[in-house]
């Protein structure tokens, strides 16, 4: 009886997995098909060709976009890790006036959807003269309320004696954070790092608003503009190939950090 239940369970899971995987696998195979076959649903191309990829590289500076994306995402991820953990540490471990108010304010900003602050942020960036610059892409994302809250909660679980021992050993607060707390908070750092990296990498709306110069465009922005903007000349294969190139870094990241990504999704209750 239980064996049958198990088999049924696995069948349902398999069906679910296929439902999610099929579009991706189909896309992967379609990029290798000749243009004429693309509309068919079969997964095995009659003839493998890299024509679609070739024309993507010819039509748009996708490598430049990849480098831009990598630079912007890395800069944002590392600064979120550094600055948010600093704020999280102060909120969790130091005692100062207005601590609760500040924490509540930070929590409150998490309730406001990004779309609402979009316009004011844009106006600020325009005033700073940062339209069409890397700063414009990076600075608004350099700290994150979600990361602050997550760090604060995690740091609260570190025994106070450990920090006191470090204070007596000769640390000041900054070195306590980076030399004692960081090495003992790898799960929290991985969670924040991965979630920040994924969301920043996939961000389309903000770059679309702030970047017009093709040389500064991020990969999702360029791929989006390419697929709907007409320069793909309605060639499905090319559009799919550019989407595939966009997904490759994320898939690679997933392969390496699979365990941490699943843990971080579970622990933070956030889906990527």
């Amino acid at each position: 009886m239980s064996k049958i239940n198990k088999i049924i369970g696995y069948l349902i899971l398999l069906l679910g997995a296929l439902t999610f995987l099929f579009p991706f696998i189909w896309m992967a195979s379609a990029t290798l098909k000749p243009e004429i076959e693309i509309t068919q649903l079969n997964l095995i191309p009659s003839k493998i060709t890299f024509e679609s990829y070739k024309s993507v590289f010819q039509k748009i500076p996708i490598i430049r976009a990849f480098i831009n994306s990598l630079f912007v995402t890395s800069a944002i991820t590392s600064s979120v890790l550094i600055f948010s953990s600093m704020v999280g540490y102060a909120l969790a471990r130091l005692r100062f006036k207005g601590q609760k108010v500040i924490f509540n304010l930070i929590l409150f900003t998490m309730m406001i959807p990004f779309q609402i602050t979009l316009i004011p942020t844009y106006i600020l960036i325009v005033k700073f003269g940062w339209v069409n610059t890397y700063q414009g892409l990076i600075v608004p994302g350099m700290i994150s309320a979600f990361a602050i809250v997550l760090f604060r909660q995690y740091f609260k679980s570190i025994p106070e004696d450990l920090l006191d021992a470090a204070r007596i050993d000769g640390c000041h607060e900054i070195s306590i954070l980076f030399r004692v707390i960081w090495p003992n908070s790898l799960p929290a750092l991985a969670t924040v790092g991965i979630i920040t990296f994924l969301t920043t990498w996939n961000e389309v709306l903000w770059p679309l608003i702030i970047i017009r110069d093709q040389q500064l465009m991020t990969m999702p922005q360029m791929v989006t503009l390419f697929s709907i903007g007409g320069s793909a000349e309605a060639q499905q294969g090319v559009i799919l190939a550019s989407a595939m190139l966009l997904a490759i870094p994320i898939v690679t990241l997933y392969l390496f950090f699979q365990r941490y990504i699943i843990e971080s999704m579970v622990s933070s209750g956030i889906k990527g």
Binding site: P159, D161, L162, D164, A165, A166, R167, I168, D169, G170, C171, H172, V180, P183, N184
Partner: peptide
Amino acid sequence: KDRNVAMVFQNYALY
């Protein structure tokens, strides 16, 4: 850090 004292804690507090 500037007092030149050392402290031993109940729960050891080793890094």
